[in-house]
Amino acid sequence: MRTQLLDRPFIRYGPARDLAAHMLLRLDDLEACWSLATNWLRKELECHRVDAGFGAPHARTYLPSLAEAKDANYDVPTLGGSAVDNHDPIMQAMWLSPCPVVFADIKQDRRLQMRLRQRLSKARTKTKIGGALRAGNGSYGLICADWTEHFAPSDSNIYDRFEQTVADVLGPIIAVARAIDDQERPSRDGRTQSIPAGMADGQRNVSAVTLTSSEAEVASLVAKGLSYKEIAIIRGRSFSTIDHQLRSIRKKTGVSSTSALISLLARMDFPLVACRDGDEASRSRSDY
């Protein structure tokens, strides 16, 4: 990949070569790759917010802001917090269009349906550029750049910079970083997470997964992109309890990392099947 991206004239937008070099150095750290990508793109485009997430065109919902960068000079609200209807025509346009989709004026754009328009207006979005992250022949995520304090300049090459950076750098590198993150690797406590033979992350029959009611609630919060600390505060539990529950959820769903779990939850239908906490004899009530 380094040879393809850096040793050949593959990257069309010159400054993005430096971003590619830094991301390749952190290829085994998915969160670091996301952070480098979203923060670099926000600064390069001089926009106010860049958000991205994993998903699929056919999924019922999309969860924005798995990764998000915001301009520290403004009080820019987050676009995350809840799922978006992935069947909305505009969402499908971003997934399926071969090029990024531009919304020059959110309030005036007639392509937007009311619910999504309200969502974007609440996040103070004035101009938006959104496109799919692709690897091979498939789309595996979305990335969007938003201007909230003013409209995007119309006399610049912002669109080309966004399109070329996403297509040439972010799409291929994030895909590899995600694949590495999804592979079987030691869990937080040093033990190896076992994935059933022939069953890669996201391929388990999720309809057969049964979580306790506590785990189902934690999973729903993870799906919204909340951090361990935020989940612990909302649930009124300790950080270690949330970590224990997430390890249990990952084991049941057959994924090896929290980022892979978020990706899986973005592709599956809710709600998860939940049993009462007391129905699992192997779980102590003190764990929850």
Rank of each mutant, 00 (worst) to 15 (best):
S259E: 14
E217T: 05
P186N: 12
A37P: 01
T241M: 10
A200I: 07
D146H: 11
A21P: 01
T78P: 15
T127N: 11
V169R: 00
S286R: 09
P77W: 02
N157G: 06
S263T: 07
A83P: 09
A59M: 01
N86V: 12
A197P: 15
R178W: 07
I106H: 10
L27I: 02
N157W: 06
L112A: 04
A281T: 14
D168L: 00
A266P: 01
G138F: 09
V222E: 04
P98M: 02
K252F: 05
E68A: 03
S286Y: 05
V176P: 02
M94G: 08
Y74W: 09
R117G: 08
W40M: 03
L6E: 00
D146G: 11
G254H: 11
F162I: 02
D29C: 02
R237Y: 09
R60T: 13
G141P: 03
P100F: 15
L133G: 04
D181A: 06
R124E: 10
V76M: 05
A69C: 09
K229I: 09
R117L: 14
M91C: 14
L24M: 00
A177M: 03
L133Q: 09
L24P: 00
G81W: 07
L19C: 01
G190T: 12
A219H: 01
A223T: 10
N73L: 06
P153E: 06
I11A: 01
G225L: 11
D71R: 12
L170W: 06
T3Q: 09
A197D: 10
K252E: 00
K229Q: 07
E68P: 05
W95P: 04
V169L: 02
G130A: 09
F10S: 08
A232V: 04
G138L: 07
C275Y: 00
L6H: 00
V101G: 10
L112D: 06
Q118E: 15
R235E: 09
D277K: 11
A132T: 11
Q245D: 15
S248C: 03
R276K: 08
V101L: 11
P77I: 02
D201S: 15
Q4M: 15
D168T: 02
N86R: 08
E184Q: 07
Y13G: 04
G236F: 12
A37F: 01
R185N: 03
Y62R: 11
P89F: 04
G80E: 15
R276V: 03
T258L: 07
A197C: 13
L36T: 01
D88L: 11
H87C: 15
R191F: 11
E184D: 00
L45F: 07
R119L: 15
T192P: 04
